[in-house]
């Protein structure tokens, strides 16, 4: 019997991360992470999924918590790590306070860099795959300047690292287009009627899994890719 896959998914208590957990939980051993307390996470996560609270706005602490959870599970190898956690603010860039900027860069970018380094031995042992979830905002967004910047950083980081680790650990960055995750509302942005065109999280998770299976270093899942696909495009 083939051994069960071990998968780490960050930012897994809502949005695309949760949808990915739901897809993988039936067949794989999944460790989910998120900002919420374990009790809150239990209410949304499928049964059998391990969880560790890790607030990525504090990368050093978050990574220590994740490593400790991996130790507790006895996972010395990983097949797949999906670094999906992200946060942003819809704000005039001049209005972005130092705290907002630091939180966005830490949670979206520096925590992923720290995790990539910390997970490397386990990924190498499992001949695993590191997938960074970017955003189509990575080319620039006036209303989400620091978020766009952080996602651009992930893009450049993943491309360089994929080349460095070629033959050892596969590295990919996948850029989802607008998705109905609730993130816009949390960020203080009202997309209005456009939200009806956003991909559903389940659809986006399916397209991300397909992108992972294709294995290209950079994948963009734009509007055009999910419009008209299953579930009325959503």
């Amino acid at each position: 019997m083939p051994r069960q896959k071990r998968i780490l998914i960050t930012g897994a208590t809502s949005g695309i991360g949760l949808a990915l957990v739901v897809r993988h939980a039936p067949d794989a051993a999944v460790l989910a992470t998120g900002r919420r307390s374990a009790e809150e996470a239990r209410r949304v996560l499928p049964d059998g999924v391990a969880y560790v609270q890790a607030d990525q706005r504090h990368p050093e602490r978050a990574v220590a918590a994740i490593l400790s959870a991996l130790d507790d599970l006895g996972w010395d190898r990983l097949d797949l790590a999906v670094l999906n956690a992200g946060t942003g603010h819809a704000v005039d860039p001049a209005g972005e306070t130092p705290q907002m900027l630091r939180d966005v860069l830490d949670a979206n970018l520096f925590c992923a860099v720290t995790l990539a380094q910390a997970l490397r031995p386990r990924l190498e042992a499992g001949q695993g795959r590191l997938v960074l979830i970017g955003s189509t905002a990575r080319k620039g967004a006036a209303g989400f300047a620091s978020y766009a910047a952080a996602k651009a950083g992930l893009h450049g980081f993943a491309r360089a690292l994929a080349e460095e680790w070629r033959g050892r650990i596969a590295v990919q960055v996948v850029h989802p287009g607008p998705t109905d995750t609730g993130m816009h509302a949390r960020a203080g942005h009202d997309p209005g009627r456009l939200v009806r065109l956003f991909a559903r999280t389940g659809t986006m998770a399916r397209l991300i899994d397909a992108a992972i299976a294709r294995g290209r270093t950079v994948e963009t899942i734009s509007f055009a890719r999910f419009l008209g696909r299953g579930e009325g495009g959503r």
Binding site: P93, A94, L105, L109, V113, R138, K139, G140, A141, A142, F144, A145, S146, A148, A149, A150, K151, A152, G153, L154, H155, G156, F157, R159, A160
Partner: peptide, 14 residues
């Protein structure tokens, strides 16, 4: 590379 990409796209965004 990550830091310079981030800065470049921040400049474009603002």
């Amino acid at each position: 590379a990550a830091s310079k990409d981030a800065l470049a796209v921040y400049a474009k965004s603002v």
